[in-house]
């Protein structure tokens, strides 16, 4: 498979693309059913706002002229998810996000400038609760695909046995510190204060036969909304879910900072200007529920389920960072 997509016509007209998009539809539909059965309410996602998730790893936001004010396209709906808990205790949305990732990510095979997430948030939940929901959700989606669409998996040459462990075994959970130590054993030098780099994630992922969680990232590696563990300062109550077979990160999630003063302080610590988030902070000052939640990269999950070389194959209209196309 070439690194960049073929022409839009060739891509859209390919039997492989059809199989991938049917599997993606199955994943979305199964995840929706699963969450609704648990009492979650689906909200339509916001697309623009005065501020959005500052993210990390150097992705640029897209500015929108909103009657003379600078608005942003959503890089994630994190702040809206927290605010939405004022309406319902358990919410989710299928949200489009745009992140102008650095051009170097065009060759990682796992970055798209435009992508979609299952965005889930649960009032009163802790990180462990959210991980439980995420694990069940992934399992339900994968089971649905293996049961309903074996022919499409066959078109893609994807062996359903790849998911035997995923369907039968609980997902392992290792801390960031343990992951750093394991990477050192594998000969990969990983900054213990930072996000696990892409190569490191791929190395851990290649060793695994089913997805696994990495938890408790150090402060400084994540955004202001991941809650700092009050009992272990400097450590966040958060997690990533990494796929098996080298497919890397599928999910990021965390318990959230919800106290106004803590949010402002963490904004400063992540180099952010609270003034930019005044509309969210006004809501937070009057109180928002404690919560935990996560986002699943739908194209990444599709890529993993389909066993695709590149994530762009998991979308009808791929936007590769830095590449101009349909």
């Amino acid at each position: 498979m070439s690194q960049l997509p073929p022409s839009p016509r060739k891509h859209l007209d390919s039997p492989r693309t059809r199989a991938v998009l049917r599997i993606q539809q199955q994943i979305v539909s199964a995840a929706r059913d699963h969450l609704r059965a648990l009492g979650f309410v689906e909200l339509l996602p916001p697309v623009i706002g005065p501020a959005t998730d500052p993210g990390g790893r150097g992705a640029k936001q897209v500015d929108v002229d909103y009657y003379g004010h600078r608005y942003k396209l959503m890089t994630s709906a994190i702040m809206y998810k927290q605010a939405a808990l004022l309406s319902f205790d358990k919410i989710f949305c299928v949200a489009p996000n745009v992140r102008l990732e650095p051009p170097e990510t065009c060759s990682t095979q796992r970055h798209l400038a435009e992508f979609h997430q299952f965005d889930v948030e649960i009032a009163g939940a802790g990180a462990q609760d959210a991980m439980g929901v995420a694990e069940d959700l992934v399992r339900a989606a994968v089971r649905s695909v293996t049961e309903q669409l074996p022919a499409d998996l066959d078109v893609l040459g994807r062996d359903p046995d790849a998911f035997a462990d995923l369907l039968a075994q609980p997902f392992d959970r290792l801390t960031h510190a343990t992951a750093v130590a394991e990477l050192a054993v594998l000969g990969h030098e990983q900054n213990p204060d930072a996000e696990i780099d892409w190569e490191g994630e791929a190395m851990l992922s290649r060793k695994a036969t089913r997805p696994f969680f990495v938890t408790s990232y150090p402060k400084g590696s994540r955004g202001f909304y991941d809650r700092e563990d009050p009992e272990v300062p400097g450590t966040l109550r958060n997690f990533d879910l990494l796929a098996a077979e080298g497919f890397g990160e599928l999910i990021s999630g965390a318990e959230r900072e919800f106290d106004h003063a803590r949010i402002v302080t963490r904004m400063r610590e992540t180099g952010e200007n609270p003034g930019k988030y005044q509309h969210f902070l006004e809501v937070a000052r009057e109180g928002i529920p404690a919560s935990a939640g996560f986002g699943i990269g739908i194209e990444r999950l599709t890529r993993y389920v389909c066993g695709l070389d590149a994530v762009w194959e998991a979308t009808a209209f791929p936007k590769i960072p830095g590449v101009v196309s349909l």
Binding site: G56, R57, E195, G220, R268, E269
Partner: peptide
């Protein structure tokens, strides 16, 4: 703590 974390955040974001 803000200075320390801002530096760590920079190192993590822009390795």
């Amino acid at each position: 703590e803000i200075l320390r974390q801002q530096i760590r955040f920079m190192r993590s974001n822009y390795p």
